[in-house]
């Protein structure tokens, strides 16, 4: 227990060190979360659009259109 609190105190710099690592974790993992959410949302949007136009050829195949 004492070892843990000593570790957390980091020689008196604990609040600065943990705030630094915490900020880094929140920002960098937050960006991952947002990127994955965006990916899922656009995936869902495309699925909805495809469902909307059954006549349109699926573009996932080999010779899909080049994007402009």
């Amino acid at each position: 227990m004492q070892m843990l609190s000593e570790f957390l105190a980091m020689g008196g710099y604990g609040s600065f060190i943990w705030a630094a690592y915490g900020t880094a974790a929140i920002v960098l993992l937050g960006l991952l979360y947002l990127s994955l959410r965006e990916l899922r949302a656009t995936g869902a949007e495309i699925a909805a659009l495809e469902a909307n136009s059954p006549r349109r050829r699926r573009m996932d195949d080999e010779d899909g259109d080049e994007i402009k």
Binding site: T42, E45, L49, S53, I67
Partner: peptide, 8 residues
Amino acid sequence: MARRARGM
């Protein structure tokens, strides 16, 4: 994918 969705 977003560009494709916009195009569609």
